[in-house]
Design a protein around this nucleic acid. Structure first.
Lengths: 256, 256
DNA sequence: TTTACATTGCGTTATTATGACACAATGATA
DNA sequence: TATCATTGTGTCATAATAACGCAATGTAAA
């Protein structure tokens, strides 16, 4: 079986290919039907859900490793990812469950780089939910979106990592624009507001929100109105990418 | 010679004690005579200055490793340190200069964990300059304070790390109080303002600064006035540690 | 066809935060 | 005793923010 060979190779010789004791974990956020979502893998070796993660090739920048994982799970290229924190408790090792997993697929090993402790770096990405084709990997039986409000049991400290990522995301919202990767190209003001409300987990005043967002200049109003909608139809907007990028660097200059 | 044995041991067997491919580097900031300073080591193996760094014991939290380095270099215990960023360019390796260094002390090695690429995590600490006794280590010939405005040539990407640390420090100033570890227990309002001005590298209005800082409630005014000073004598203040800690978590709520 | 109504778009007003500056009090030094 | 740089406290104009009003819109119900 191809899987078995691949798995054995990974446990026996992976350390010749990858750096030891260090990994990246990706927090891939999406937004759909007014819910913030995150992409998780079902880890065969643990029987639990896990953040999509990976290792760093010996000659690879860590940022590239994170992008590689993102692309493998979602098919998305050139998405901006940013490290937000290192997680380094000494008990970050899955020796026992890894051994059990190997036993289950008929492999027995005494030593492996995979049995050691791993320090991991969390990376966040905000992606367009509708463009993602979740793909499981050799070590996973499934790859699915979960609502932030309904997270399953997860391995190791992955729930803690997710919690910190959310805190980080909320903080960033005050200094950086959000939405370019999370929303479709055309969107309405209520769409954007709901995104902000979902991430911040609080209601915002519709009129003040509009004034502030418009004030940043990151939006372009289109001469197009949403159709087939109850009540007054809202205008479509799209991001002014140049000004959006500027705001990413310079900050937003207001609080919500 | 004791050094030689210790060095050889480190290069040959360090990987049994420490995690591989990963290190911590400490940015130890101090404040003295209106100058922001940073503690640097003169690395024997490179003949250049370097950030005090170290490796992570196999059963040690990375935060502990950073604190260990801080204590070894400064003698200071229980100082709060915080990770701020990971540096992971693929060329972060000192194989060549390490080999040259070993040759100089009469050791020749083909392989060593120390020749590999290292990913490093930057940690910042703000310490009381007057309480520090800089101590060099086995691999360093000196340990000294440098003014931020006058940094010597440094190994690898350490100058870049310092630059990012300063950016980070400036950003933090808007959300968190600073000074508890940098200033002596008693200090005057002009002292505190000069600290802020030095870090931010800009002048602040004396009266507005005072209003805002007082407004946070992190200061306690003492019934004591600075003596032997020209012109009107300023009051002493000290930090209200409880409210200071609160502000660390909740943020300051204003801009300077 | 008309009416009701939730929603949008564009406003106003009160409150608060901020930046810029005025002035008297202080106390060592001339 | 006078000088003067510095401190402590306060004022005022301006900008940012929160809270709210109201007409326009267009589907859905009457």
């Amino acid at each position: 079986m191809i899987f078995e060979k691949e798995i054995k190779e990974h446990y026996l010789k992976g350390h010749e290919k990858y750096l030891r004791n260090i990994s990246v974990d990706c927090l891939i956020f999406g937004f759909h039907e007014n819910e913030l979502k995150i992409l998780l893998l079902h880890a065969k070796y643990a029987g639990l859900w896990a953040l999509p993660g990976g290792f760093i090739l010996k000659e690879e920048h860590m940022d590239e490793a994170a992008k590689r994982v993102l692309e493998q799970r979602t098919g998305l290229k050139s998405i901006y990812m940013e490290q937000f924190r290192v997680f380094s408790q000494p008990n970050r090792s899955t020796k026992k469950i890894n051994k059990q997993f190997l036993k289950n697929v008929g492999i027995e090993l005494e030593e492996s780089w995979m049995f050691e402790r791993f320090i991991t770096v969390g990376y966040t990405a905000l992606v367009d939910f509708t463009k993602v084709q979740p793909v499981a990997d050799t070590f996973s039986s499934a790859c699915e979106w979960f609502n932030i409000s309904n997270i399953p049991e997860m391995i190791l400290d992955h729930k803690e990592i997710l919690k910190k990522a959310l805190e980080n995301l909320r903080l960033q919202l005050n200094y950086q624009p959000v939405g370019y990767n999370l929303l479709p190209e055309k969107f309405t003001m209520p769409d954007l507001q709901k995104l902000y409300e979902t991430i911040l987990d609080k209601k915002l005043d519709r009129r003040n929100f509009q004034r502030k967002i418009i004030g940043t200049g990151i939006l372009k109003k289109l001469n197009e109105i949403k159709k087939a909608v109850a009540h007054k139809a809202p205008s479509y907007y799209k991001f002014d990418l140049r000004k959006y990028q500027k705001a990413l660097k310079a900050g937003m200059g207001f609080e919500l």
